[in-house]
Design a protein around this nucleic acid. Structure first.
Lengths: 294, 294
DNA sequence: TAAACATGATGCCCTCCGGGTATCACTCGA
DNA sequence: TCGAGTGATACCCGGAGGGCATCATGTTTA
């Protein structure tokens, strides 16, 4: 196998067609350059230059090999640059998981800020519920999640994106919509309820149960995604507790009513990521977004 | 700058994710391999592998650099192969000049033989009169010519392709066409004549003058290309002496009549090339065509 | 919980590769 | 015919890189 030095030497001689001048260009003397070319020709197995004690010219094989040599040198000089770009985080891939509701609120501005500052970072997006995001982050299939609590603060670092109110989704024209006041526990005593899964959507389930004593006999559906809930409300299957950002989903035939609540804006959305960051693009993105100091 | 050995080492470690096994695969011991990778990382300017005293894994930059490294190695191993193919003549470029008439006779079979034996040799074809071919061969713009004498036998080597008769081209329905015998000098005493240029088509000019005493007052046109002559005959501008292969040009409105001649088939076509062959593809083609021994 | 094991990094030695200087061999032009 | 120009060769020397022995550290096992 030949070396990059030999290739550089050959290119110089091929361009100068003169060993002395080529050696000067390479900041070396002529003899080692001669031997370099000899070694290269031996390694390639073909005569590349025709030397005539008076002039030097390329052989047919030499012309072809010159092309390849230039290609090799170009590739070799580009490779470290791209590697460094990726190591520094200015280039690379960021895999982001997000919930359906966050997709309509915070995701857009967030992506805009990332792409404006880090234009060479590719972004993979996946709509996932919080549980799937946590699994993805742990397995390394995801770099960043936009998810709800709870998550293990030993493993994950996080940044609170926003808090929002819980509202009641009802079909258009529902009697409760005419009340023009905050909905209370009593209003819901006999309403058919579309409820969050206590396992898949634990966060919402717990929140609702803390806010309002539920008549479990009223529950007609148990689902895990906000979008599914709103769709079922639109289909007049019942009413549902959803975060305020669900109003942005744009589903027709649904109205959103305020709820009487002791806590202001109890629903949280966090950006979360594993504390052991291996993706430089993530590190840089977190700094860009001011989620992390240093 | 890094070396190919470092690249090969990195690829091995990246594939094995284990320094010991990678070293074994490379027929070396583990310590120098470790240092090779360190040198490579220093040269690249980025950490490529994350070592953990227990396991090895690629960094984001390492994954990207692995692609480039594989590309480099592939290119580096292909380059000598193509160079050798060209040096051996099995691949490359052959630039052939030919006269219009030879294009309709010998050129086809000749090309067929070359491409059948040397399928990877590209062929450039140019229709040129003998003088232009000789200039092209001398300047190195042409490798092989299909031309007429004379040419300098000191400079050019040659191979006689064929000899052919001279015939008289006359417009269809010309009185001479009805004679049904060889045409003699006397038949042409008053015929308007389309004659070869004494400079551009010296060979034909001399041949004709040797065969038949020309009435120079009868010459109505002086041209250098056979195809032009036949076209002018078709346009009834006169009669012309052309080689037998001109019958293959397929020009309508022209008949070809035999000439009384002392010499059988006086018109020669040669393959010619400079004695100093630099194009390996030419050397191999000449041997393939049996134009040259060894 | 301590000892054996596994694995990458480091220290040291030695060989060989590659660069430098001096010189040769060959050709061309005055 | 001789000197200038140019690529190849001889010889020397320093440094790069490989091998062996060993260290540092984390994991497995008894």
């Amino acid at each position: 196998m030949f070396t990059f030095d030999q290739l550089a030497g050959f290119i110089a001689v091929a361009e100068e067609l003169h060993f002395g001048r080529a050696a000067e260009r390479l900041n070396m003397t002529q003899p080692p350059l001669s031997r370099q070319i000899q070694k290269l020709e031996k390694a390639v197995g073909a005569e590349l230059l025709e030397r005539d004690n008076r002039k030097v010219q390329l052989t047919a094989a030499g012309r072809a090999f010159l092309d390849e040599a230039r290609r090799l040198m170009a590739l070799a000089s580009r490779a470290p640059v791209t590697a460094r770009r990726i190591a520094s985080g200015r280039s690379g891939l960021l895999r982001i998981g997000f919930t359906a509701a966050s997709g309509f609120s915070i995701l857009g501005p967030l992506l805009e800020e990332i792409t404006a500052t880090l234009p060479d970072v590719d972004i993979d997006l996946q709509e996932l519920v919080t549980g799937e995001q946590i699994a993805g982050l742990l397995s390394g299939e995801l770099d960043l999640g936009l998810a709800r609590p709870p998550f293990d603060n030993e493993i994950f670092d996080s940044h609170l994106l926003y808090r929002e109110a819980m509202v009641l989704a009802v079909p258009s024209g529902h009697p409760l919509a005419g009340l023009n006041r905050d909905i209370t526990e009593k209003d819901l005593r006999d309403a058919p309820l579309i409820m969050h899964s206590s396992t898949q959507a634990r966060y919402f389930y717990d929140l609702v149960v803390r806010m309002i004593p539920i008549q479990h006999s009223n529950v007609v559906h148990t689902v895990s995604q906000i979008l599914t809930m709103v769709s079922l409300v639109a289909a007049k299957r019942g009413v549902a507790f959803v975060p305020h950002s669900a109003t942005l989903l744009g589903v027709h035939g649904v109205e959103f009513l305020p709820l009487e609540s002791s806590v202001n804006d109890p629903v949280e959305l966090h950006a979360i990521w594993t504390r052991t960051i291996t993706n430089p693009a993530l590190a840089l993105a977190l700094r860009t977004l001011d989620f992390q100091e240093n």
